[in-house]
Design a protein around this nucleic acid. Structure first.
Lengths: 357, 357
DNA sequence: ATGAAAGCGCTAACAA
DNA sequence: TTGTTAGCGCTTTCAT
């Protein structure tokens, strides 16, 4: 059995309160007493029982991170950033995967998952504006991702519309006019309330501003946002015979699948079709050609999300009204839209380079 | 305040023992009583307090996963598999990142991290054979990765030597003779005890069997195993002027960086140099060209690791002696070693395809 | 089939 | 400055 406060107290010849005071660095402990207690702790290898502490304090020191899947590159990088931000504050992170299944997402909101946590950072896929009612969670909650307008919870989101618009404007700036998009919501699918619609809106705004007509044939659904669906959507686009000179993929994984499908079809990137993705995942610097992308400020998102969650957890009395934060984004120009490869990654992208171990 | 067993008992007009019996599906509860209790639970929205349960039972229902970084593709996929395997058994997973720092790894072993867990699955980088002494953890522990021969803990490892040998034999089979390797331990670095040495051994065995002399100039260190270090090591290899007609990268991330560097140098893959990686991460099917790799059986590793850990957690009395398990590996042949691209991913690689959402 | 009560290890209010 | 003690919510033993 592990030693307890009582054991330490006995060995040190003091009461458990004194041991507790030492453990918690309380003042008003005589140095000699402190030394004796510390010696006893060392001798016994005492470690506080976190279940007992949790029961007593109502805090576990662990937060939950609910994401579709850590296997998707963007979420892996997000999880990394969240774990780093949490560790800075002495918190552990339990990772829960919803697989984008709405029922699982509702379980997260209802508190039926991730129970041994003080609060949850949640990146939903199928919970949206129409679900504002549901979002009154009984625990500290910070939402990531697309905006649930007017919802009752803190929210760290991205400039989905304006950054997508900026991505398309980048394609327009380099002279492209027939810009395809992959990753749109399937028109048959009624449940989707995610980022897709917002990014498509940005796409349409950019086109409208440039006086280019929206062409439905250029906008392709992809189902989930993975390599294989990106490749499949692109193959379908090519097979359709619709001419295009640029491709906006709604995330980088789709874009990497698209690069592959374009290569198979003999479409040169960027000569025949420029490509831009979204998320700026690590791999974008090493595809062939390297992939231009929208950097949504992932580290800032994670840092802010954890900070807000910690504040909510510490909150007493009247709650602060829900806050909405959108970190800055920027467009990263690489070979897939005609820009030179930068070998020195640090100069190109200080944010991710800083994390390279 | 959340409702407790007492609240439920009061509302249902029974004692807390009876509520507890209902919650735990104990027999010997009269159906009418059970219904009343269930109604009260529903009415109050009762959820057991896991801290209290943990304090009482000594179990938290959470396991720890300690890996270098979830940002690295292989570990992201491993974490996914571990989380899935744990969820099947009703367990949560706290993810801890060691960043491959030895001091952090020692903290994991000493139980100074990941404290609110019932046991830990640990993939160390800098803990090896010479540390067998240290590995007497005071909690259930399952090690992943390179083999700590004779250690006191359960271990799920890979056939590092024989699978690396098989990878090189694959390159030999397609007629390559000057096979470079990137990702070896830096000769100046004395702390490394990871998979690198074992995989290099497999490389040397394959060469020896084929009667090919080992050439140190073909074997390059890369520091950490990332895209950028793979690219840098490959650039250095090319710049050295040492002729080579194949490249074995000790993991896929290195290999993807190598593909990029080879492309920059005008070396065609596989015509001028065939390339094979290790891990068979999702991205390998979508690089240009697609990347041959060693599939180490990640899902089986995760499943077995969690199963062993659960057994250890449940263990009473005399412990079962430490077990060592090595799931099967296999070589996946793709374009980078001259094999045709298979569009239908399901046929090519049933294991990972099964997980595609 | 159900109830009463001890106690898991800790924190913190109160006492000395 | 240090000690005593109640009680967090649950599980479980023992009684009934």
């Amino acid at each position: 059995m592990n030693p307890t406060l009582h054991d330490v107290a006995r060995v040190a010849g003091v009461s458990i309160k004194t041991v507790s005071n030492v453990v918690h660095d309380h003042p008003h402990v005589r140095p000699t007493t402190r030394d004796r207690v510390i010696a006893a702790i060392g001798q016994l290898g005492y470690q506080p029982n976190l279940s007992a502490r949790g029961l007593r304090s109502g805090k576990t020191g662990v937060i939950g991170l609910a994401i579709p899947s850590v296997r998707e590159a963007y979420f892996a990088e997000l999880a990394d950033s969240i774990i780093v931000a949490a560790e800075k504050r002495g918190l552990g992170v339990v990772v829960d995967q919803t697989n984008g299944v709405r029922a699982s997402e509702l379980d997260v909101i209802a508190g039926r998952r991730l129970r041994l946590t003080d609060g949850i950072v949640f990146s939903p896929v199928h919970i949206g504006e129409q679900d504002a009612e549901l979002l009154h969670a009984q625990f500290p909650l910070v939402l990531l991702g697309e905006s649930v307008f007017g919802g009752p919870t803190d929210h760290v989101t991205m400039h989905n519309v304006s950054s997508a618009q900026a991505a398309v404007e980048h394609l327009l700036e380099i002279g492209r006019r027939r810009i395809a998009l992959i990753g749109a919501d399937d028109p048959d699918e009624t449940t989707s309330v995610g980022s897709a619609a917002l990014r498509v809106r940005g796409y349409r705004q950019a086109l409208a501003k440039a006086g280019i007509a929206y062409e439905p044939a250029l906008v392709r659904p992809a189902g989930s946002w993975h390599y294989d669906t990106g490749a499949a959507a692109t193959r379908a686009l090519v097979a359709s015979g619709t001419a295009f000179d640029a491709l906006f993929a709604l995330n980088d994984t789709l874009a990497i699948g698209a690069l592959r499908a374009l290569d198979e079809a003999g479409v040169r990137v960027p000569a025949d079709a420029a490509v831009i993705g979204f998320d700026n995942i690590d791999a974008t610097r090493f595809t062939i050609p390297s992939l231009s992308s929208v950097d949504p400020g992932r580290e800032a998102i994670a840092e802010v999300a954890v900070e807000m969650l910690v504040e909510r957890i510490a909150e007493k009395g009247a709650p602060v009204p829900p806050r909405r934060i959108k970190p800055d984004f920027h467009i990263v120009r690489r070979e897939s839209t005609g820009f030179a490869h930068v070998v020195d990654a640090v100069r190109e992208d200080a944010t991710s380079a800083a994390r390279v171990v």
